[in-house]
Computed example of a mutant assay.
Amino acid sequence: MSTLGLEITPRPDLPALVARWQREITAAELQAGYFAILAAADEMNCWRWLLDLRREELASPALTAWMNNDFFPKLPRRYAAPVRIAFLASPLRAKQEQSDSSVASISAHPRPDQGYFTALFTDEAAAYQWLAR
Rank of each mutant, 00 (worst) to 15 (best):
K95N: 06
L92R: 11
L14N: 07
L17G: 10
A40P: 02
R84L: 09
M1H: 12
D123I: 01
Q129H: 12
C46E: 14
Y128S: 01
R48I: 05
D100W: 11
V18K: 14
Q129C: 09
L4C: 00
N69I: 00
P61D: 03
L131W: 03
L53T: 11
P15E: 10
Y116E: 00
M1D: 04
L131Q: 04
F71Y: 14
R55S: 01
A19H: 11
I8H: 05
T118M: 15
T64D: 03
L14D: 13
E7D: 08
A89T: 03
Q31V: 07
A65K: 11
P76C: 08
R23G: 09
S105K: 10
P61L: 05
K95W: 13
Q129Y: 03
M1A: 14
F35S: 08
D113F: 03
Y79L: 04
S101H: 14
R78L: 06
D123G: 00
E97W: 08
A62F: 08
N68G: 09
R77G: 05
P12W: 13
A19D: 04
F121R: 02
A65D: 04
M44T: 07
S2P: 02
E29H: 14
Q22K: 15
R78N: 07
Y116G: 00
Y128M: 04
D70G: 03
D70I: 06
L38A: 13
L4Y: 03
A89W: 00
R54S: 06
T9H: 08
T118R: 14
P112E: 12
Y128H: 13
L120Y: 00
V103M: 13
W66C: 00
A104F: 09
E43F: 08
L4D: 00
P73A: 06
I85V: 14
A125Q: 13
S90E: 01
L50N: 05
A108H: 13
G33M: 11
Q114R: 15
A41I: 05
R84F: 06
K74G: 01
Q98G: 15
D42T: 06
R93N: 11
L92C: 04
A119N: 04
Q22H: 12
L17D: 06
F121E: 02
S60Y: 07
D123W: 01
T9K: 14
Q31D: 00
Q98C: 09
E97C: 05
L17Y: 09
P12I: 07
L38G: 07
L58Q: 08
M1T: 13
R93M: 11
F72D: 00
F35N: 11
S101W: 14
P73W: 10
T9S: 12
